[in-house]
């Protein structure tokens, strides 16, 4: 039973990781490419890490909760790097399939407090 659950989690994780990177390779402009890796890889690596926590937790050497830390860290950092990348791309004025709105008058970096995730560790 445990092995079935483990196999399912590992396979899900690997498939989502693969699909995320496929999105990175396949989609046609930077902003759409951004979606694949940030979403698919968080769940992909997340379920791999849960599988690993289950695997080591049931081997009789005590509960293993290291992986929770890595998962948590990835879930906090992935959106921050996605936001920063989108901001950098807007700043550079990359070509986009969607109409890009006007750049605000004040430089977008004028307020360092405004980055998401700046103060939540």
């Amino acid at each position: 039973m445990l092995e079935v659950v483990l196999s399912f989690l590992i396979l899900t994780g690997a498939v989502f990781t693969f699909i995320g990177s496929l999105g990175l390779a396949r989609l046609r402009d930077f902003y759409t490419r951004l979606h694949g890796p940030t979403k698919a890889t968080t769940l992909g690596v997340g379920s791999l890490l849960i599988a690993s926590a289950l695997f080591f937790g049931t081997r009789g050497e005590g509960v293993s909760l290291h992986e929770v830390l890595v998962t948590l860290f990835l879930f906090i950092t992935a959106p921050v790097s996605a936001h920063l990348l989108a901001k950098a791309a807007l700043h550079l004025g990359l070509r986009s399939l969607a109409p890009v709105p006007e750049e605000p008058a004040v430089p977008p970096d004028g307020n360092p407090e405004a980055h998401p995730g700046h103060k939540q560790h």
Binding site: Y31, T38, F75, A105, H115, P116
Partner: peptide, 21 residues
């Protein structure tokens, strides 16, 4: 605001890109 931006990044097909000054 930062929690909202992070949540938007994690959920269906959206990425937060810029906060107005």
């Amino acid at each position: 605001i930062s929690l909202l931006a992070n949540t938007i990044c994690l959920t269906p097909g959206t990425v937060s890109a810029r906060l107005a000054p």
